[in-house]
Design a protein around this nucleic acid. Structure first.
Length: 282
DNA sequence: GCGACAG
DNA sequence: ATCTTGTCGC
């Protein structure tokens, strides 16, 4: 049933989470491990994954976790897996992974079992990597648990290490000119976007490659893998809520998924304004 | 009391 | 994260 927003976790849980982050942080690989990451054109990169978790509006528990895989450089969805889940941990800034990562790991496991040929060479994660209070954001967490290269892509700046979203920072953003321009913290995803993306290393990739990859995945402000995962997880929730016989009562224990599917194609609405890049002039 | 707050 | 469809502009 629909649960309410959970209470903040006890101090004991937070200290346990911190110990877990410290333990797993030692396993993070910051730097390129794959040949395509070293190539300026990312030659050799064929599949990029994206993950996201969307929530049911008035519900603090039910959500849809999704994993999509896109071809590169075409950026067409070749795999999609949406799964209704019951969240257990509440959202606490700095501990996002403990709320979302278990379901993303499950999705990766299903993909490896059912469509091993479609396992992505890298995952774009909604959130931060090493740009984190303790240097271990959700992108690092997912990377270590799956051993897949991961990149953190956040839409807002997480202020850490005394980093401030002050006038100084805003001025640096204002100075970004063309799509692709970036400074160590922020990337302008395309020519007409004023709000940047905050890209950070998750696992098994360098910041330079992470930024190049993210840029290469941007048709709009939000990189396609993450954007498609977001769109599809929200649509899945919409369809689920509209269905007369939503889920099954007692089978939620196994957190069953809507059979992972290999998708031929798909159409979706396109954003406007700053989220939309300029039309292609011919 | 004030500021910060990934999703 | 969520509340939100069509619509004005280049």
């Amino acid at each position: 049933m629909a649960g309410e927003a959970e209470a903040p976790p006890p101090e004991e849980t937070l200290s346990f989470w911190k110990r877990e982050q410290a333990r797993l942080k030692a396993l993070v690989v910051v730097g390129d491990t794959e040949a395509w990451q070293r190539d300026a054109a990312l030659s050799g990169l064929r599949r990029v994954g994206g993950v996201d978790v969307s929530f049911v509006k008035g519900d603090g528990v039910r959500a849809c976790a999704s994993l999509v895989v896109l071809s590169y450089p075409e950026l067409e969805v070749v795999y999609e897996d949406c799964c209704m889940v019951s969240l257990t941990a509440p959202y606490v800034s700095g501990f996002l992974a403990f709320r979302e990562v278990p379901f993303l790991v499950d999705a990766v496991r299903r993909l490896r079992e059912k469509e091993p040929r479609l396992v992505p060479q890298v995952l774009l994660v909604d959130g931060n990597g090493v740009l984190h209070h303790r240097g271990f954001g959700v992108a690092c967490h997912l990377g270590v648990l799956t051993d897949l290269p991961c990149v953190g892509v956040a839409k807002k700046l997480l202020q850490v290490d005394g980093l401030e979203n002050d006038a100084q920072h805003k001025e640096k953003i204002r100075l970004l000119q063309a799509g692709g321009d970036s400074f160590p913290l922020a990337l302008k995803s395309h020519d007409r976007s004023s709000r940047p993306l905050y890209v950070s290393v998750g696992h098994k990739i360098s910041l330079e490659a992470a930024v190049r990859l993210t840029r290469g995945c941007c048709r709009f402000r939000i990189p396609e893998p993450v954007r498609q995962a977001d769109i599809r997880s929200r649509d899945y929730i919409r369809r689920t809520l509209a269905a007369p016989e939503p889920p099954t009562p007692a089978q939620e224990r196994s957190q069953k998924a809507q059979g992972p599917k290999v998708c031929p194609k798909g159409g979706s609405k396109e954003p406007e304004g700053e989220d939309r890049p300029p039309e292609a002039h011919s």
